[in-house]
């Protein structure tokens, strides 16, 4: 492959036939081949496949919530409050999972709640991955004072149990969706930082990095196009597994009354609201919690499957 010397890796004009375009084409082809191989392996990994299908189901339901939900999740008839699920005594077929204390349809609220959980989980993991990867790559590659500073900060944040830290941050920021994402990412990036930094330290000594340096590639280009593609699998696996964790954290904060506030239908706050009716309307807490369990379970199943497929080194028997 022809090599062009670029002091900063960005100053060249890129025209068709340029080595970078060529490289991109090759990489796309490799990616597609990888992806097809991945799907093939996924088919032979039953638990990961089940996880993936359930996640897709959750995504579809969340995305098309207005079409899927049988009722308005925010409006209820007080005369129809606390109706039991349809298969129980007192239940009506109109409200499959029953109604809550304000007469709102529980199933519709759970369907809308999927949006919040998926959204918070996805956004907070994505931000954590981006920050953690960026800082981890920089710290591991450049070392020095930057590494020292970032590593000490990470150590400091690791001194707090996750939920305690998130609760403290939420108590100062106040409730709400954005603050919730902030509270989760404040500490969430640390794990990715440590992972990427560690990988970077070991990759940096390998021959291909030396070769890239000798070729005169810029540091930025070595990090982005040489090293990161080699460690991206591990990052994706950790990211998937953390997403389940973040969803539980969001639900826990909402449960404590610090996250998403009623009347917004977050699963955690629904479990909390239902707690007051535990004696005569057990379904109010049970079903939203079961939804959290199934979603997190699917994500974890898929995540562990991903690990087996993408990163066989870490496979647990």
């Amino acid at each position: 492959m022809p090599v062009t010397k670029t002091p900063d890796g960005l100053s060249e004009e890129i025209t068709p036939g340029h080595p970078l375009i060529h490289l991109l084409q090759i990489k796309t082809r490799i990616f597609l081949a990888d992806f097809r191989g991945f799907i093939r392996k996924l088919k032979h990994h039953p638990s990961a496949l089940i996880g993936a299908l359930l996640i897709i189901l959750f995504l579809v339901v969340a995305f098309f919530a207005p079409a899927v939900a049988p009722h308005d999740p925010f409006v209820g008839e007080l005369s129809e409050r606390l109706i039991a699920p349809s298969w129980l005594e007192g239940g009506v077929s109109q409200y499959i999972l029953g109604t809550d204390q304000q007469g709102r349809d529980l199933l519709s609220r759970i369907i809308y709640g999927a949006r919040i959980s998926l959204w918070v989980g996805f956004i907070s993991v994505t931000i954590s991955v981006l920050i953690g990867t960026l800082l981890g790559a920089a710290a591991g590659y450049f070392r020095g004072k930057l590494d020292l500073f970032l590593s000490r900060t990470a150590d400091l944040l690791l001194a707090f149990p996750f939920l305690i830290f998130a609760v403290a941050v939420m108590s100062f920021l106040g409730p709400g969706l954005i603050n919730l994402i902030l509270a989760l990412t404040f500490k969430g990036w640390v794990e990715f930082f440590r992972l990427v930094r560690g990988e970077m330290l070991s990759e940096k000594t390998k021959e291909y990095v030396e070769a890239a340096k000798a070729n005169g590639q810029s540091n930025l280009r070595i990090i982005l196009s040489e090293v990161l593609p080699n460690i991206i699998h591990t990052i994706i696996v950790l990211g998937t597994l953390r997403m389940g964790f973040f969803i539980i954290m969001e639900a826990s904060l909402s449960f404590l009354g610090l996250g998403i506030q009623p009347p917004d239908p977050a699963w955690g706050s629904m479990v909390n609201e239902g707690r007051q009716f535990m004696l005569n309307a057990w379904w109010l807490s049970t079903f939203p919690g079961a939804a959290i369990l199934v979603l997190v379970l699917s994500i974890n199943l898929f995540g562990e499957g991903l690990r087996d497929i993408l990163d066989p080194r870490l496979k647990i028997e």
Partner: peptide, 8 residues
């Protein structure tokens, strides 16, 4: 057990 929210 790992996937279950403790409060629930």
């Amino acid at each position: 057990g790992i996937s279950m929210p403790a409060f629930w």
